[in-house]
Amino acid sequence: MKLNENYILKNIAGTAVVVPVGDAVNDIKGMITLNGPAEIIWKGLQNGKNIESIVEEIKSEYDASEDVIKNDVDAFLNKLRTYKILVD
């Protein structure tokens, strides 16, 4: 699992946003706003973490069952794949 390098993650005025550069400007118009768990997933991917440890990290910060978190992480990763943000 690797993030497409043509995306910048920044915290701007208290919000995590992802902005496309290079060829990615053709895939995503504008920008993406990340909520807390999505930011944890993005940073986890940046640091080469596996899904288990990302789920673990979310679990330590949010009050939800492991199954729910796993499902949400999977759904988010699939969405990233759809937009070619996550490559293999």
């Binding site: 910048i8 920044k10 915290n11 005025a13 946003v17 550069v21 290079g22 706003t33």
Partner: peptide, 30 residues
């Protein structure tokens, strides 16, 4: 709020496709 302002700002400024330039722009926008 800042995040709404950011969206409006990005539509009315120079958006570089170069990563390094866009990083700097975003830092300044922040």
């Amino acid at each position: 709020p800042g995040i709404l302002a950011l969206k409006l700002f990005m539509e009315q400024t120079v958006r570089s496709v170069k990563k390094e330039t866009m990083e700097k722009t975003l830092d300044l926008l922040g």
